[in-house]
Design a protein around this nucleic acid. Sequence first.
DNA 1: ATGGTGGATGTTCCA
Length: 268
Amino acid sequence: MPSLRIATWNINSLRLRLPLLKELVAALDPDVICLQETKVPDALFPVEAPGALGYDHTVFRGMKGYNGVAILSRLPLEVHEAAPDWCAKDDCRHVAARVDAPGGPIELHNFYVPAGGDVPDRAMNPKYGHKLDFIAETRAWFAERPGFTRSVLVGDLNIAPLEHDVWSHKQLLDVVSHTPPETEGLTAWQETGFVDAVRHFVPSGQKLYTWWSYRNRDWRASDRGRRLDHVWVTPDLQGALSKHVILKDARDWPQTSDHVPVCVELAL
DNA sequence: ATGGTGGATGTTCCA
């Protein structure tokens, strides 16, 4: 049965970590790679690099210094132009494509949700308000498309929705990424038509992280992680979920990102 | 309670 492996990684500068993409390919052998925080304007995108690794089809949306998303694919892609300009900021946090997958096209959404700053208060911290507005808009947009199928949504959603998606639920309830307005908002977005593909494999009572701060000297020993990176699929694809990998070893790669790649395989 | 590290940028912002 043909399989489709989709990986997602907040690479935190595509140009700086271009060599690590080869490691990602060696470890996961993905058919499609979704990247966030590429931090590269479209005019400076390293267009030759994906092809050299076997990914001849790319779509990307970048800007100077911040944000930026890209999809690298072995399979043909067709970019989707349907999605709105979230929060009218034109800030390169979403790119969508139709992937020419076995058994028919799959709609793939790659998101980089705003981090939201430090203070979990709309009035004091506009970045937090922007984050909540962003996930409210995306939720509303998907809610207007009931019954959509063969879709996958991935990315750095910058929210750890479940109790065991953080190292200490109680200590992080007031920390941006795990506050109730965020976790409830993210869950509502997911419930517009997706299931959590990684929690399909890993019970909700088990700790699971994809991000460890740079600010911990020994990230593995302290293990104060959060699950910020996600893969969602529409329910019609749930039965096809065949494998998942959270590439924790990538956190020890030289000069790596603070996020690790997450990969899901579908038997199509 | 604070600061810890890292990337892009440019004398600071963002995460």
